[in-house]
Design a protein around this nucleic acid. Structure first.
Lengths: 99, 99
DNA sequence: TATACATATGAATATATGCTCATATGTTCA
DNA sequence: TGAACATATGAGCATATATTCATATGTATA
């Protein structure tokens, strides 16, 4: 049971948070980053999704503070920037597996 | 760490699952149902959202098997139909409160 | 230095989504 | 029975979203 008051703006913030996980491309990116740091090209190869689409989604994930990108030479190394991602994805994955 | 293989279709299913939580109206409905069974009109009054909008979103939540509606006379009593909802919402709520 | 590689990003487009409005269906009760 | 109430749903509309295509920027290397 939710024990505290949830303000109207909290619902929008919460909806935005869940939106980050509501797209298969972003989920694929996040799941791949669970295994460790990756460059954009590596994520493209692992997912089979175009460079542009991956880059656009990484930008969104960066804005949402879920991933972090570190530039080094011609590469940008991406890592997860939020410790809750793994728990939420694994919990929800276990959930849909039950169905 | 995710220990098993995630199939391509699983990503779409997972994205659909998160989509259920990615709208403030649906979140408001779900949070209100955490407190127990409610009729459509009660949810409208508690949220200040129109009957039509609530009914449309309840239909979506029903299709996604997150809520269940039981007709009795002129009322339809809605309840949560998935034990994971409370955990996921509370965990994510705690998360955004940290920011 | 010229070329290939790595990444980011704007514009255009197609599709999805959520709301309102109107209305249909069914129930209760005076 | 007729009016008020409760809910569901289709159509239309406005907005959001994801992708592709083209291109810009920066780096490495032959």
């Amino acid at each position: 049971m939710t024990k505290f008051e949830i303000k109207d703006e909290d619902y929008f913030e919460l909806a935005d948070f869940f939106s980050a996980f509501s797209d298969s491309t972003r989920l694929k990116i996040l799941v791949n980053l669970l295994k460790g740091e990756k460059t954009v090209t590596e994520i493209c190869n692992l997912t089979g999704i175009s460079q542009s689409a991956i880059s656009h989604q990484l930008t969104k994930l960066r804005i949402m503070k879920l991933v972090k990108g570190t530039k080094s030479g011609k590469f940008t190394y991406y890592t997860l920037d939020d410790e809750h991602i793994e728990t939420i994805i694994n919990y929800s994955l276990a959930h849909i597996m039950e169905l």
